[in-house]
Nucleic acid binder design. Structure first.
Lengths: 220, 220
DNA sequence: TTCGTCATGTAATGGGTTACATGATTAC
DNA sequence: GTAATCATGTAACCCATTACATGACGAA
């Protein structure tokens, strides 16, 4: 009942950091706005919110203060709006910076990336570089395994491996570009709240091959 | 204790179809040879094997028949070699053909693809096309969501979505090529046991952009 | 004789899902 | 007044993981 450590918690804190919301709305944003996350269900979202409240990272606010005078009904079930506390904000900051051992895995990385707009540049750099080196390890192992088993596998398996490797390679290139852009960006050390003006030189035509990593799954 | 329905079961059956193996070896092949699968742990593998035995899809064979005369030791703990039964083979075939609702998701698809060498052409076609239409649905939703929220998101979120969409688009193109190759291939309807001779015209230079889909994760 | 690797397992836990149950509000 | 969708939740399960425990076998 206490150990919440998943993408969901992270994403909830991140979204709530931008503005208070109630559960239903939260879930929608999880599925659509961010584009990255697989569709979390209410079955996981609501319990998660509860424990975050218990931990003191969130506070519930019952209803948008509808002026008790105009709404005399007693048992009126109101929307529960969740607001991030100071402790919650701090906790989120820690999660961003801390970078546990699995922080570079696909979904964890995607989740972090999704909140880059709220992240300081040095943390962004660490995340991007961490992800990159994780992918490079992956490539290493794939290359090794491929060399070991070459010719002993049928064409389909080979094609699958080749395809997988290319995907990873592409993502590495993508990361390289992002890192370079990041390096060249305004040297200001922190919080570019609205949006990073950088990365505009090259328009969105077709170069700059975007790639595989960030998992996109179905929303509702 | 009865409902085994995961990638693991599928992969185990598929690997065992090629040849009998014991658990330890099985796990290694799961992690490396196939390249696709995330590293399954013994904690999931062995229980899985047990239930498959109970279900009659596998039989255990204790040790490689080391000739009882030469090895008189009584309690000699032997390797347990698992062999696919006829029922097991049939079951695997069903799983391949059946195509439940989540059969087109990333890992399920990758697992199926990994056994294409043992799969009939029409099933291969169905799998590839199923995957493709699933991805196209995904694209549809992504485009819609992007159109809805354009300009209201910061550059990073946008970049992430763009990147995600490109990944999906690339995989669609990859599938298109595979499907075309499949269509053009030898018209023989079934089991190209060793390897499909097709898809050789275009060498592995750089066209035919391979892409994102099949999840590759770390092995041990 | 000790270390690494092969080899097999179990118990507790984790992070999520589905299916279900309920009720309020809005649009027709 | 009824259907869709907004809104909140619970219980049971799923598929896997980690950490742990055991032991055989080969090579240094």
């Amino acid at each position: 009942m206490s150990k919440r450590s998943g993408i969901l918690e992270f994403a909830v804190l991140g979204l709530l950091r931008e503005s208070p919301m109630h559960g239903y709305e939260l879930r929608k944003r999880l599925n659509t706005s961010l584009g990255i996350f697989r569709a979390f269900s209410y079955g996981s979202l609501y319990p998660c919110l509860k424990t975050l409240v218990v931990q003191g990272y969130l506070v519930e606010e019952t209803g948008p203060e509808p002026d008790p005078l105009t709404v005399p009904l007693a048992g009126r079930r109101a929307k529960i709006v969740y607001r991030l506390t100071a402790a919650g904000k701090e906790h989120f900051e820690e999660l961003l910076a801390h970078s546990g051992p699995d922080a570079w895995e696909d979904e964890h990385f995607a989740a972090r990336f999704a909140f880059f707009g709220q992240t300081s540049r040095d943390v962004r750099m660490r995340v991007l570089e961490g992800r990159r080196s994780r992918l490079e390890e992956r490539l290493e192992r794939m290359r090794a395994s491929l060399a070991r088993t070459r010719e002993r596998l049928d064409d389909y398996t080979l094609e699958l491996q080749r395809h997988g490797m290319e995907s990873v390679e592409r993502e590495v290139r993508w990361l390289n570009e992002l890192i370079e852009t990041e390096r060249a960006g305004r040297p200001g050390g922190t919080k570019p709240q609205p949006a990073p003006g950088g990365s505009d030189e090259r328009d969105n035509q077709q170069q700059s091959g975007g790639e595989p990593g960030p998992r996109v799954t179905r929303d509702d």
